[in-house]
Simulated scan of single mutants.
Amino acid sequence: MKNLCTCLLLFFLSAFCYAQNTPVIDKDKLFDLYQSQRYADAAVYLKSIFNDDTQDIKALTQIGYCFLMAGNNVEAEKYYSKAYQIQPHSLPILFSLGNISTKRGNNDKAKKYYGEIAKIDSNNFNVYKLLTNLYPSLKDSLRFVYLLKANQINPGEGDIAADLAEVHAVSQNYDKAYEVLNIAIKADSENLVLQRAKLPVANQLKKYQEVINSGERLMKDGMDAAVIKDVAKAYYYTKNYNKAIKLFSLLENLLMQNENTLYFTSLSFRYLKNYKMAAVYAKKTIDEAISPNTTSYYVLLGLVYEENSQFALANSAYKKGLQFKANPTIYYRLATLYDTKLNQRKAALNYYQLYLKSKPNAADDKEEIKFTKDRIAQLNLAD
C-alpha cells in the first residue's frame, strides 16, 4: 500500500510539473515536502513559482490543497475560490470549498457549494451525506429530504440509515424506521449501532420478544444504558416484572436512572403488589421529575411580584417554592415580606426563626443573619 501511494504521488507530481511550460518546478523538492508532510512549506514554494494572478487551474488547486492540509483555511479558500471562478462545475473544487466553509463555520456557503454538486451529480451519495450534517434539527424538512435521497442511493450505509430512522421515529413513523434499519442491518449484520437503534423502534411496534432477544445479546458486549432501558421495558410489557425491576435497578446502580425508568420501576412493583417499594419509587419519580432549581425559579417569580407591589402573588409564589424544596433564601424572603409589606409580625417571626434553623451560609449570608437575629429580638420585645 505504501509503495502504491508513493507511485501515485510521483505520478501526480510528474503530471503536475510536466503541465507547466514555465516556470520549472523542482519535483524532487516538492515530493520531499509532501513526504514529510510539510504542506505549509510546499504552499510557500509553489507560491514562489507562480504569480498571484496565475490562471493555471492545477497550480491553484494544488496550492489550495497544501494550505488546506497545513490548516490555513483562509489561504486555502482564497486559492480554491480562484479555481472556482475558472472551473465553477469542478466537483473536487466544490467539495473543497464546501469542506473549508464548514470548517470555518459558514454553513450557508457550505450549503451553496454542496447544493451545486447535487445539481451537477444528483446521485452523489457523499454530498447528500454532507448536506444532512448542515441541518442538525431532526424536524428540519431539508434534513429529511437529504437523508432520504442518500438512503435511496445507498440503503446499506449505517450512519445515514440510523439518522433517517431517527427522523422517522420523531415523526412516529415507526414502521418506516424499522424497515430502514432492517435493510441496513442485513447489509451489515455486525453493526451494533444499528442494532441498538432498532430496539426502541421495535418496542414501539410491540415487537417485545425481538427486543429481549437482541437486547440480551447486545448487553453481553457492554452495559449500554439505552439498551438496558429498552430491554427492561420489553420485559415490563411482557409482564415479566421481576426481570424488568432487575434491569431498572441496574440503571440506578450505574447512576443512569431517569424519571421514565423510575416510573416503570414503580409500576412493576405495583403489579407485583409490593406497594411499599412502589411508593418508594413513585416518590423517586417525583423527585427526579422536579428540577433542583425549581425553588429558585419561584423565588425569582416572588421577587418580581414583590417589586411590582403584588404582595399576595409574591406570597403565593414563595410558598409554592417551599413545596419543592425549603432553603434559607425562600424563608428569608417570606419573613421580610410578612414583616415589611404585609405587616404580619407573628408570621414574620416564624419565618425568621425558620430561616436561622435552615442553616444559611455563615460567610455568604452574614448580613442577612445579623439582621434576622436583631429583628427577632425586636419582635420578641414588641410582644
Rank of each mutant, 00 (worst) to 15 (best):
residue 315 N to Y: 01
residue 257 Q to H: 11
residue 203 N to C: 12
residue 263 Y to C: 07
residue 240 N to W: 02
residue 186 K to Q: 15
residue 120 I to E: 09
residue 20 Q to P: 01
residue 222 G to I: 11
residue 62 Q to G: 00
residue 22 T to S: 05
residue 36 S to F: 09
residue 87 Q to I: 08
residue 334 L to V: 02
residue 81 S to K: 11
residue 73 N to P: 02
residue 334 L to Y: 00
residue 98 G to L: 04
residue 135 Y to C: 01
residue 329 T to L: 05
residue 60 L to I: 09
residue 172 Q to F: 09
residue 42 A to Q: 05
residue 76 A to L: 08
residue 379 L to K: 05
residue 194 L to I: 12
residue 103 K to E: 15
residue 383 D to S: 09
residue 245 I to M: 10
residue 119 K to A: 12
residue 383 D to H: 07
residue 175 D to E: 10
residue 282 A to Y: 12
residue 370 K to C: 02
residue 86 I to T: 04
residue 372 T to K: 00
residue 97 L to P: 04
residue 13 L to Y: 03
residue 130 L to Y: 09
residue 192 L to I: 15
residue 235 Y to D: 03
residue 224 D to L: 08
residue 317 A to T: 02
residue 258 N to M: 03
residue 316 S to E: 12
residue 199 L to Y: 13
residue 344 Q to D: 14
residue 330 I to P: 00
residue 347 A to L: 14
residue 85 Q to V: 07
residue 256 M to W: 04
residue 43 A to Q: 09
residue 282 A to G: 15
residue 76 A to C: 10
residue 353 Q to P: 00
residue 368 E to P: 03
residue 91 L to S: 05
residue 324 F to M: 02
residue 62 Q to C: 06
residue 210 E to F: 15
residue 105 G to P: 07
residue 299 V to H: 03
residue 98 G to P: 04
residue 118 A to I: 11
